[in-house]
Amino acid sequence: MRAQHQIGGGRWQVELELCGSGDPLLYLHGAGGLLGVDPFLAELSKDFKVIAPHLPGYGESTGGELVEDVVDACLFYHQLLDDLGIASTNVIGHSMGGMLAAELAALDVHRVKKLVLVSPAGFWLEQHPIPDPFAMDLPELAAHLFHDPKSPLAQMFTTIPSDPQQLADMYVERTKRLTQASRFLWPIPDRGLKKRAWRIAAPTLLVWGESDRLIPPVYAGEFASRIRNCRSVTIKHAGHMVMYEQPEEFVRIVRDFLKG
């Protein structure tokens, strides 16, 4: 269910997906944002109260200019949870959202119960530089994001609408999102998490698509070595968009971890 919330005394108008009931589960999307068709969220909502906000600057969420760095983003999520009356929650973060989820868990260890990081950004290994997603056109991006760039899913991702108005809308929305993402990822997606990751106390699960060509699976080792209570799972036949590519397996693994 799509909802709009006033957050922080009207500082932000937040668009969020709110579905299911049970233990809260906060989902932080990646740089591309929620796609509008995100079946794994519906699936997870069978067991959890899923809260998936659009980061300010994405979709209908306003106040992007107030979220300029990692601290601003974490304060925004804290405010959101405060206003929703949620004291502590499980958190899943994907890619850029993984970086922000890890920061959230490091800055306030009491707020995050369990943490799932899916192909998270946040570190930089000299030997394994992460390719520049901002300088890629759609087919190039798809080749980095998807295990099989020819799959219907990847094709859908790269399809450009033929209607000029739709094309313009799509282009403007995409620009808006990536502009906001650039605050966290440009030019190198490292905003100092390595200094703070040691604080993360929540049990943490790392999920990686085996053929992730954007943030290669070697980064799992880097996260595992810096987070105390951490284990790592790799999913076959999946790339960076693992939860879209292998939703059943993804949901099963995440559910087991959060319920376990």
Binding site: A135, M136, T179, S182
Partner: peptide, 16 residues
């Protein structure tokens, strides 16, 4: 072409 523009380099008004 992907170096010629960066998301946010041009304002949304200019893009529109």
């Amino acid at each position: 072409p992907n170096f010629a523009d960066a998301p946010g380099y041009r304002t949304l008004n200019s893009i529109r």
